[in-house]
């Protein structure tokens, strides 16, 4: 366990970049949104919502992928096993997702208490993902980090193991399979059923349950792929 923590430090030791980029870009997005919405005299009801928060999630997933392609060869060079490196990476990403979830929840509370920063902005309290329960709200914020980060980590591991051709080949295969699937669904007229299934799902299943499940599958896939990857 100590060794996993020692290796986890590889991800966190240069924390400025890890922390500053995602939150800096999100803060920028928040600032721009505040300016725009403050300059509108009367926002139409229900039009005070923004998707600026997505920037945080996207930048975080890019940082996660970069950490694989850069830290993995270094870790391997320092005599760290692939298994230890990967477990340390999972640990860092899970702890980070929970911490960021808590932070976003606090920002959510601030936004609520200040009346949307005085201009009824809904930057953190986005409709549908704004839930009543505090713990649940933290999970709703945290799980998309896990979902995006583990998917991007899986892609990065795939790249490390199979190279650019492997990555593009997998991408091509994915496009083919998705295309065939869409064709099949259209042909069979299943879209209605799928839509019905989705809308019958509980809000929490869609926000937390399913993404968490996919994140776990991606994390396990990454583990399987990295065990035979060479720097």
């Amino acid at each position: 366990m100590t060794r996993i923590l020692d290796v986890a430090r590889m991800h966190t030791i240069a924390w400025v970049g890890q922390l500053a980029w995602p939150w800096g870009i999100m803060a920028l997005s928040l600032g721009v949104n505040l300016l725009i919405f403050a300059s509108i005299d009367e926002a139409a009801p229900g039009k005070n919502t923004t998707g600026g928060l997505a920037s945080l999630y996207i930048v975080c997933s890019i940082v996660a992928a970069a950490s694989i392609s850069q830290v993995f060869p270094f870790a391997l060079g320092m005599g760290v096993t692939r298994r230890t490196f990967y477990l340390a990476t999972v640990l860092v990403n899970v702890v980070q997702a929970v911490a960021y979830g808590v932070l976003l929840y606090l920002l959510n509370l601030i936004e609520g208490a200040t009346g949307g920063f005085g201009i009824e902005l809904r930057f953190f309290r986005i409709p549908y993902i704004d839930v009543d329960n505090g713990l649940l709200q933290i999970a709703v914020y945290a799980v998309p980090f896990l979902f995006l980060n583990f998917l991007s980590i899986f892609v990065a591991v795939w790249y490390v193991r199979f190279g650019m051709n492997g990555l593009l080949g997998a991408g091509a295969a994915l496009i083919l399979v998705t295309g065939l699937l869409v064709a099949l669904i259209t042909w069979q007229g299943w879209f209605g059923d799928i839509w019905q299934w989705l809308s019958s799902q509980h809000q929490i299943s869609l926000l937390v349950g399913w993404p968490a499940l996919i994140a776990a599958v991606a994390a396990l896939g990454g583990m399987a792929a990295i065990r035979r990857a060479n720097a």
Partner: peptide, 10 residues
Amino acid sequence: KESQTYPTAY
């Protein structure tokens, strides 16, 4: 090794 790389933020 001569070819060892380090994360660019280090």
